[in-house]
Amino acid sequence: MKKILSIVSAITILAFFILLIISTINTGGKQGRPGLNEVSGEVAVNYNNYVPIRGKDIYGKELPESSNDNDIIMIDFWASWCPPCIQEASVLSSSYEYWQSKNIRYIGIALWDNETSVKKFVEKYDFKYDITLDKDGKYAINYGVKALPEKFFINKDGEIVKKYIGPINRESLDNIIAEILEKE
């Protein structure tokens, strides 16, 4: 009886510590959930929740009814107050000039923001693609956005094929789009 009790408690204590050690190694001795500390870069898409973006853009113009539904689309959730978004702004505007000719569509969705600062931002960085304001965060929640910026890449069949969290550089952006084009 006593023996069983001490064996059980020894195993419990051991298991507890092994669990703590493994989890601490996973977070690298920092506070945070295992595996969640790296929030930047390409992440797996595990749920296809693509909905077309409709409504008006920030200038009151109706967004194209996704005229050619078989375009490849890059949806970017951003805000004018978010520092990483400022960091990547020029990458986006310059890359669009290149990819536009290859029938890649960009849509920028500004979140938790107001129209004036969005317009100012768009003009400053010369965004040529459609920018809309997601007032109640409906699209953001639908796409499962947590942090800004977050990008979703949609292929011609209307599937989300890639998701990118954090500021992107030209190279990764080009690679991702090229990869999707290749698969088509």
Binding site: T24, N26, T27, G29, Q31, L36
Partner: peptide, 8 residues
């Protein structure tokens, strides 16, 4: 408190 694998 000082680096455990939890969110708080």
């Amino acid at each position: 408190n000082r680096g455990g694998p939890v969110v708080s």
